[in-house]
């Protein structure tokens, strides 16, 4: 396995904020992701959950597995509910509390994109996390606009293959000029932990896109979910990087706009899109032609990303990446 960075243990929150009793399936990436996220964020966090698998995973009334304040909200309102809570905590004088919206890809790419766009445009001081399992899993695996080309879902069954490429949510969010955007996954826990640690110190809308393996939805063996997620990054299907809007100007002695792309994880081996797809039952119906097209798209995106990261002149030698704020 590629080494990313070591987590300085003294930074870890002592308290385990996610308790046992989660109602997720075996091998669920979304559950593991929350555990890591909370390790990074710590106690002074409010979690906002719209309709998604996490509405269930967290536990049934009167129990909750999360040891921080949690509010469940309607499906399409994660971002703006967080905005409302932010405003209230500011009014209460508790500006240090992080308000995190934690939504699936359906709640983010599709039904929630309007309120997310609104919050991001206003640059409300919230953290928005999309755990992307690439379909509506809660309702039984239906396609979303995050479902990749060729993936089986119950609404893209055999004979009605998904031909439309996945929405580029990262670029959509960056087009809102937010101060921080990152991708991460449970396959690179140190990197993910550091990202959740650092967002606490960035004011404005922070967006983190997590690739989140889902054994029943992806038709994979639960014991392979982390491994397959790592392959997504190695195959450059899901690059792990971060983009920051502001940089410190030594000349002016203040922050100024200075877009900086940093690739946090460089693949340590050659892996094709096809090899990645072959690990999952959901891609069984994809055609050679489609795989070819997807590969081309993946390559083009990766090249663009490398260029952007190079262009900033700060391509990191340390794959752990940019830990400045």
């Amino acid at each position: 396995m590629q080494k990313t960075i070591d987590i300085p243990r003294e930074l870890m929150t002592e308290k385990e904020l996610l308790q046992p009793g989660l109602l997720s399936c075996q091998g669920c990436g979304a559950s593991l992701a929350m555990k890591l996220a909370m390790k990074g964020l710590g106690e002074r966090t409010v979690v906002v959950i719209p309709a998604c698998c996490w509405s269930i995973i967290i536990g049934v009334y009167p129990y909750s597995t999360l040891q921080v304040p949690v509010i469940h909200v309607p499906f399409e309102t994660a971002a703006v509910s967080a905005s409302g809570i932010r405003a209230a905590f500011d009014a209460r004088g508790e500006k240090d509390v992080v308000v995190m919206a934690w939504a699936g890809d359906g709640g983010t790419f599709d039904i929630g994109i309007q309120s997310l766009s609104g919050a991001a445009e206003r640059n409300d001081d919230i953290l928005y996390v999309c755990y992307d399992n690439e379909a509506y899993m809660n309702t039984g695996i239906q396609r979303s606009s995050a479902t990749p080309v060729g993936a089986w879902t119950t609404t893209t069954p055999e004979g009605s293959i998904k031909e439309e490429p996945k929405k580029d949510i990262e670029e959509i969010m960056l087009a809102h000029h937010i101060p921080y955007m990152a991708t991460a996954s449970v396959a690179y826990p140190d990197d993910m932990y550091m990202k959740f640690k650092k967002v606490r110190y960035i004011t404005g809308t922070k967006f983190i896109h997590l690739l989140s393996p889902c054994p029943p939805g992806w038709r994979i063996d639960p014991s392979k979910s982390v491994q397959i997620t790592r392959m997504a990054t190695q195959a450059k299907v899901f690059p792990i990087y971060e983009v920051r809007r502001w940089g410190f100007s030594k000349e002016r002695g203040c922050l100024e706009e200075n877009w900086k792309y940093t690739i946090n994880v460089y693949p340590d081996r050659e892996l094709s899109t096809k090899e990645y797809m072959q690990t999952q039952g959901r891609f069984q119906q994809i055609t050679e032609e489609m795989v070819h097209d997807v590969q081309k798209r993946v390559d083009r995106k990766w090249d663009e990303l490398v260029r952007k990261a190079d262009g900033s002149g700060t391509r990191s030698q340390d794959p752990g990446g940019d830990s400045s704020l």
């Binding site: 409010v46 909200v73 703006v80 509910s81 967080a82 809570i85 209230a88 609104g118």
Partner: peptide, 27 residues
């Protein structure tokens, strides 16, 4: 002395005040 959240729709306006009110302030 209030925060005015200039949302992008009424659906969001209502959701924002639901969030704020759950956080315990008059909305």
């Amino acid at each position: 002395d209030a925060r005015f959240i200039k949302v992008e729709s009424e659906h969001s306006a209502m959701a924002a005040v639901v969030g704020a009110s759950t956080a315990g302030v008059r909305s």
